[in-house]
Simulated assay, not measured.
Amino acid sequence: MIPPVIIKKEPVFITLQPDKREVVTFTTAFGTRGIKKLGAYSVRIKSFTELFSIYITEEINSDVRVLPNLEEADASVERILEMLPVLKSKYKLAEDISYIKNIREYQNEPMNRIHWKQSARMDKLMVKEYEYSGTAKNYIVLDLNLPGGIYSKEAWRYIHKKYQEESIKAVAGLVKHFSERHEKTNLFISHSKGIYDITDSDYVFFFDYLSEVEGAIDNNNSTTELLEHIIEGVQPTDTVLVISMFLTKEEVEKLIRLRSRCGRVLVLLMPYGYREATTKKFKSYFDVPVEIRELYKFARTLEEENIIIQIWHENTSLVEGLLKISGSEM
C-alpha cells in the first residue's frame, strides 16, 4: 500500500488472507497550520508469479484542519492585567470580590489580598482568590494585514509572513488563557477577506478560525477601521488588547477614544514578530521602522490615558515583551 505523498511514509507490504481484514495506519505531522488536502493513496496488487501488478488509486476527499501552535504566556498575562488600571484596580480581571472561592499561600500578591484571619490560624501568609463576576469581557484585536501606509510591500512580504504566524500563536495562547478562566472573550481578526468577529467559551472554536486565516500585503485598510469596528460596543469594565505590526499617528485618536469607553487598553506591536521562547538570543541587524519611531512621541499622551504600548524587536520573546510591560511603572 502506498500512502499519499503528503504523509511522507514508505509503502507497506501486506499479505492478505481469505476472510481476514488488515488495517494499515499511517501517522504524520504537519509543520504549518491550515487546511491540508491529503491527495490520493494507491494499492499495488502483485500476481502470485509477480509477472504483473495492478494499481488501484483512490482519492481522499476529506481534508485535515491543522490548528495553530500556541505561545504560552499565562503568568505574564495575569500579572499584566492585575497591574493595568480601571483606574489602578487592585483586583484581577473580572473578579467578583464579594465571593471568595479559595484560599492559598501568598505569592507576592498585593497586601489587600491577604486573608489575615486564615494567615494567623495557619501561621503563614494566605491570600484570597475571588470568583469571576462574568460581567467583564476581553477584546482581542488582531490585525493580520500589512498596513496600507507601507509602500515597499514586496520587501515586507517575508517579514509580514513571520509576523502573521507568530501573532497567531500569541493570540492562540491568549484565548486559551482566558477561556480556561471562564472569561468572556471577543476576538476580532482583520484579514485578507474582511473582519472576523468571534465569540465563544471554548478556545478550540477560536482555533478553527486561526487555523486558516491569512493577512494581505496589498491591504488598503488601516488599524483605525478595525478599532472603529469595536469602539461602540465596549463597556467600562472591558479590556482591549490590540496586536498589530504598526500603529501610526492616525490611530492615536481612535485609541484615546477607545480608552474613554473601556477599562483597559493594551497595544502589542510586533513589526518583526518575536523570538520563539525555545530559540536563543541572536545578533540582530534590524532597526525599529520609522513608522514606529514616530509613535514614540505620542507615548506620553497615550500613557496619560492609561494606554500601554509595547514594541517587540525580533530578538525579544513574547514573554520578555510582556514582562517589560508588567515591570514598567503604570
Rank of each mutant, 00 (worst) to 15 (best):
G31L: 14
I80D: 11
K90I: 04
M126F: 05
Y130W: 05
E129N: 05
K92W: 04
I60W: 05
M111V: 05
N145Q: 03
T28C: 09
P147D: 08
N138Q: 11
K46C: 02
A120W: 00
I97N: 01
I54E: 11
V127Q: 03
E78R: 09
K92M: 10
G149F: 15
Y41P: 06
N145W: 09
K88D: 13
Y41S: 06
K46I: 14
D96K: 01
H115T: 01
N61A: 13
V64S: 07
N69Q: 12
P147S: 13
G34V: 12
R65Q: 02
H115P: 00
Y99Q: 12
P85F: 01
L70A: 03
F48I: 09
V43R: 00
R157E: 13
R157H: 08
S62K: 13
Y55S: 08
L81Q: 08
Q107A: 12
K37N: 13
L142F: 03
Y106I: 04
R79V: 03
M122W: 02
A40P: 06
N69G: 08
E131C: 01
I100N: 02
V43P: 00
K117N: 08
S89C: 04
P110L: 09
G34R: 06
R79A: 14
L93G: 04
E131N: 04
M122N: 08
Y91H: 14
I97S: 00
R113W: 14
G148E: 05
